[in-house]
Nucleic acid binder design. Structure first.
Lengths: 212, 212
DNA sequence: GGTGAAGGTTGCGGGGCGCGCATGTTTGCC
DNA sequence: GGCAAACATGCGCGCCCCGCAACCTTCACC
């Protein structure tokens, strides 16, 4: 990867993190595009070369995370059963989310005792309609890619067949629900891993009636 | 329902239809909020008393449709199996969507031969990022309501239990996929009904591997 | 029916946003 | 080393969204 592309990626990431940090701290309306650009060390005009709105900048991290799941699935051994591969891909990315979460807190230069304030800000941020909308759109984009990966793995047609789309939608749904819960509990995860696995298993097995 | 509320609802609906009609005809950027307001017979300022963006006005019809599914499920007899109720609720609303679709075309005052132009406009409209995002958010809102309905029906906890959320997410996913296909084929529906039912059945039964 | 309170609509004004365009600067390639 | 493409930036404009204040309609209670 050339210098050019690396720089672009760095700028993009910096803008996205800056947007998240500032908005978590000051609230969505308390942050101008100008602030984000300044924080990332570029001009305000440049912000809109990368993102077409504040919300998109925020959701961009989410999009990247989701696309990594797709990447992970594509790299699982070909002979592996579909749902085993999905399990592994999702779990791998889940661990990485934890890393990122810690990084975020560190990047915000916060002592651990402010963790609750950070979590509260996160909750507030995810409650903003525009951010919800853009985050969901990111999920939808990733879902399409995931469906393609599932189709490739199961030998189905990504356009004509319903199965890969259904699987993709179901997996993304689990991802979304889990992420919401993650934010709701403020980043502390009691048995979230088990929850993720359990949800995926339920999906694969079907949902005829509530467990137990 | 008093006169006041009826008027409000009428204005809201009129604004939403006007937004859809104009945008399908002229494209998203070819329509100003002012145009929509004029079309609906209110002042531009009033538009933003009902919707906080053009995209939200468009998605509002989708939201209403989704919430009707929830309503329909709530009105199914209590003893009925969950997935039977879901099937009926979804199918009932699907029929209504057809009605609405015809109505839309009629409201646009178009002879049937312009159906392709209308469909093309629709496709264009649904490709606009802001509209995609807002539509997905509407789905998410409805999903929450659906989860609550499922919880009520299955005696599970809408907050703590994962099952109702998973069911809701899965059903909404089917709805979304179907709607996309609906738009993709331009409103002509070969065996979409069977497709819907089949998808719902697959979900209930589980997705361990592709059918056949 | 009359009347006050609540709820809606509208015009005005302003800050912010998103983007097209033109210009200067950096990167990649030969 | 030099050229072309890609990128960052400044400028400017039109639109959007919303707060505010004034006016008008509906509703409930008398």
């Amino acid at each position: 990867m050339g210098l050019r592309e690396r720089k672009k990626l760095a700028t993009r990431t910096a803008l996205s993190w800056a947007a998240i940090r500032l908005i978590v701290e000051r609230g969505y309306d308390g942050v101008l595009v100008e602030d984000i650009a300044t924080e990332a060390g570029v001009s305000p005009r440049t912000f809109n070369n990368y993102f077409s709105s504040k919300a998109e900048a925020v959701a961009s991290r989410h999009l990247d995370r989701c696309l990594q799941v797709v990447e992970a699935l594509r790299e699982r051994p070909a002979g592996e059963p579909l749902w085993e591969g999905i399990n592994q891909a999702v779990m791998a990315q889940f661990k990485q989310t934890l890393e990122q979460f810690k990084q975020t807190a560190e990047m915000a230069d916060r002592p651990p005792r402010d963790a609750e304030a950070w979590a509260a800000g996160l909750r507030l941020m995810t409650a903003v309609p525009a951010i919800q909308a853009e985050t969901l759109r990111a999920s939808a984009v990733a879902e399409t890619a995931l469906a393609a990966a599932v189709a490739a793995r199961t030998g189905t047609d990504p356009e004509a067949d319903l199965y890969p789309k259904l699987v993709a939608a179901a997996v993304m749904a689990v991802n979304t629900v889990t992420f919401k819960h993650f934010v709701a509990v403020g980043g502390r995860l009691p048995d979230m891993k088990a929850m993720l696995i359990g949800a995926l298993r339920q999906l694969a097995a079907g949902l005829p009636e509530p467990p137990r």
